[in-house]
């Protein structure tokens, strides 16, 4: 089959995969919300805040590395976290924009930005695999799903660099993009069943912990 034909089929599949992912996400959220809600029955703490501010603060801690000791004391780890997640965002954009507005990705500046981010994310991802393999504590807590997700993302980032290189005219074979879209489709289908779906839960877990501890007065966290 011609690469163009396969490419077209994959494009269709990856939109279908997106739909499946959305559906499973909805089911996951319905599942989560079928559990009863916890309500802190105590009167607010002396320093408690009953508004949504502590919950929103908690939610925003992803962009506040100073808010937690674990990120404050490990700035390099935090930077790699940011690069890794920017890579994910860039990768998803690349996949969909390549179908919707390919000329945008052909712009040299845009292409360079995408390639740099994806290449950096690829390197971080390789580092994360090594960390998970080499540190006893990481080996102990890792599941096959953890390794597989990380490996999948690493390959996906690498393939994204090549796909963008193709789009921007540095590589000629259409297969680079086709393989990338195929990987994206698999990624979209696998994500809701894997630990990568953590970002679906993130807003809720952070909001709830902020709400509970804020009501009691210990969120935002304080240090002297």
């Amino acid at each position: 089959m011609e690469a163009h034909g396969v490419h077209y089929a994959i494009e269709v599949i990856h939109w279908v995969a997106l739909g499946v992912m959305a559906l499973v996400y909805v089911l996951r959220l319905l599942w989560l919300f079928k559990f009863k809600n916890f309500r802190d029955r105590q009167a607010p703490g002396e320093n408690g805040d009953t508004t949504n501010w502590p919950a929103l603060y908690s939610l925003g801690n992803v962009v506040m590395p100073w808010a937690m000791e674990s990120t404050r004391k490990r700035p390099f780890f935090y930077v790699t976290f940011v690069i890794f997640h920017l890579g994910v965002v860039a990768g998803i954009f690349l996949a969909f924009i390549s179908s919707l507005n390919r000329p945008f990705l052909e712009e040299p500046v845009v292409a360079s930005i995408f390639m740099i981010i994806l290449a950096a994310a690829f390197l971080v991802s390789v580092g994360r695999i090594l960390r998970r393999l080499l540190r006893p504590v990481m080996r102990l807590i890792s599941t096959p799903d953890d390794y597989f997700c990380l490996s999948l993302l690493t390959v996906w980032f690498g393939s994204g660099v090549l796909a963008e290189a193709h789009i921007s005219g540095h590589l000629h074979s259409e297969w680079y993009l086709t393989i990338y879209l195929a990987l994206t489709s698999f990624f979209l289908l696998y994500v809701p069943f894997s630990k990568i779906s953590h970002y679906l839960y993130y807003p809720f877990t952070r909001f709830w912990i902020g709400q509970t501890l804020g009501h009691r007065g210990s969120m935002p966290a304080s240090r002297g």
């Binding site: 989560l32 919300f33 559990f35 809600n37 916890f38 809720f204 877990t205 709830w208 912990i209 509970t212």
Partner: peptide
Amino acid sequence: LTRQVVGS
């Protein structure tokens, strides 16, 4: 199993 516990 509250929503909050399941989230964790």
